[in-house]
Simulated assay, not measured.
Amino acid sequence: MFRLLHVTESLCRTLLQTAAGADMAVIADDGVARVTASLSRAQEQALKDLAAKHKVSVAWLVRHAVDQFLEQNRETQLPLNLGQLS
């Protein structure tokens, strides 16, 4: 189930489509959106290890990865079936 508060419909749709079906909760507050996504245990551990190695937080790594993904795919058609969200 999704819980959406103080977020525009357009932003919600974009975030949900970006997740390509992942379970997400989006809560916006003062221009900041909090996004929750399920990761495998291996993904979680890899993020923790990388964060420790570079002395940054997991949250920083995720924000950095999202920024890079958005920049690299701004003009790209992703091979995702976004019409089939669960």
Rank of each mutant, 00 (worst) to 15 (best):
L5G: 02
Q43C: 02
F69V: 14
V62T: 08
H6Y: 10
V7K: 06
A52Y: 10
W60A: 11
A20D: 01
K53I: 08
R74W: 03
V35N: 06
W60V: 02
P79W: 06
Q45C: 04
Q77N: 10
I27L: 14
L80A: 05
L11P: 01
Q72R: 08
L50N: 10
F69I: 14
S40F: 04
S10K: 05
V56F: 11
M1S: 14
L16T: 14
R13Q: 08
R13A: 15
L5T: 10
L85A: 09
A52V: 08
F2K: 12
C12I: 00
T36E: 01
D67L: 15
V58G: 09
T36L: 00
A42G: 01
L15I: 09
T8F: 07
A46D: 08
T8V: 05
T14N: 12
T76V: 13
A37P: 04
L70G: 13
L78H: 11
S40G: 09
S86D: 09
L15K: 07
A37E: 05
F2E: 13
R74T: 01
R63W: 05
K48A: 14
Q77A: 11
Q43Y: 06
D67A: 15
A28R: 11
E9Q: 09
V7H: 06
T18G: 04
M1A: 11
V66W: 13
Q84R: 11
S38W: 02
L39Y: 00
G31M: 00
V58P: 08
